[in-house]
Design a protein around this nucleic acid. Structure first.
Lengths: 218, 218
DNA sequence: TAGATTGTTAATCGATTAACAATC
DNA sequence: TAGATTGTTAATCGATTAACAATC
């Protein structure tokens, strides 16, 4: 099947976390309802797009008032699977890996990072942001013990492919891939690649066009 | 104008860095030509998509052989503006900020991170990954001195809006925004928001669907 | 009530994919 | 040469946007 691992509603799903952030803010303000128009204004989107996106969560709004804040938060979290906590490990305790392990925001998404792994003997045994760093050799042994479901892959790209194989062998079912290598995995392993370079590519091209005064093409 | 700051060919531009990585690898192998088919196989894409994407760089391939590797590398770098070095500053020297300042990959994209800024007196004056950490108060003074063009915004989200204002006042023209706040900036300031939560949202939904055995919907 | 906002159905827009002649 | 691969033109697909009746 050609489109395996492609989620329908992809663009909508990617926008939901931004909506959720705003709606949670309204919730902490004690607001009972929030309208799609308000969310859209906050994010520079079209109200119709917000309504369409929210519709996939199954929530029903009230004409004139908007969407019930508490129910909306629950519905989005539920739709994203963020009502369930997933245990994750960092594989590659370099700069990026250590940073992500200390990134508090993920706690709000049900992502619980519980350990890190590295090959560097100088790092193994140390603690980073409260996480123990284990040797990569112990992956097979520790993944089941720790009940880890997700691996956050932050090794240098030359090691990505081989490390990925170890991760799969250890029984991990989902990989958040921060390397610039496209991983080859069995069909039942979920992979999402986070490509920081592509973001910088966009910014860089925008800068180039702006410099040219080429606003029409923007 | 409604679509200001929207780059045409957005999806193509975001794929180019992955192509570039593969083509540079072929280059270091000494290959003279690389075909769109080979690139496509490596990334699990359709060959026609790779050809269409490469066409925007203006490069001409040879039937049967493929694209000339050296020229292709140059053309992509030129198209992305990666042949020009841009000086950048980290604003918010927390976990993520420190990690990005030590992320070697950006060197290959002409991104030169030269300093970090933070409000924490305990951090100011220290060195992280070879970068001096300055006080945020010095932004206006130092940005012109350092010839910094890009700000990488990695402050905690409650500080995003106010810090952004300082950045704009200091004369920065492009912001790579890692917070989950949509920034409000003048029309001549370029912003690209990197949303790590949206990536985790995708992975999380994929996991949920896979669990249900709902492969048809994937 | 009047009108802001919803959900639905249809139209538009843009990106991906297909088809195929040209060619090294 | 034969055939793999290109660039172009057309078709398809999916996502965004528009229009509007329903309604709290």
């Amino acid at each position: 099947m050609a489109n395996k691992n492609k989620v329908s509603y992809g663009p909508s799903i990617r926008r939901l976390p931004s909506y959720l952030h705003i709606i949670r803010h309204a919730q902490s303000n004690g607001d009972q309802f929030i309208s799609g128009t308000v969310i859209a204004n906050e994010l520079n989107l079209e109200p119709i797009q917000v309504r369409k996106d929210l519709a996939i969560t199954g929530i029903i709004g009230k004409p004139k008032k908007g969407y019930p804040v508490n129910e909306l938060v629950t519905a989005i979290e539920r739709y994203l699977g963020w009502n369930v906590t997933h245990k994750a490990i960092i594989v590659g305790a370099g700069n990026l890996g250590s940073a992500l392990s200390g990134y508090q925001e993920f706690k709000n998404h049900g992502l619980d990072i519980i350990a890190a792994f590295d090959t560097d003997p100088a790092k193994v045994g140390k603690i980073v942001h409260g996480l123990p760093i284990h040797s990569l050799d112990q992956l097979t042994e520790l993944v089941p013990q720790l009940h880890a479901e997700i691996a956050i892959l932050t090794v240098p790209s030359p090691y990505a492919t081989s490390t990925c194989e170890s991760i799969v062998k250890a029984g991990i079912k989902a990989i958040w891939n921060f390397t610039n290598i496209k991983l080859k995995v069995p069909a039942d392993i979920m992979v999402w690649r986070e490509d920081l370079s592509s973001g910088y590519a966009m910014l860089s091209v925008m800068m180039k066009l702006a410099q040219k005064g080429d606003t029409a093409a923007l």
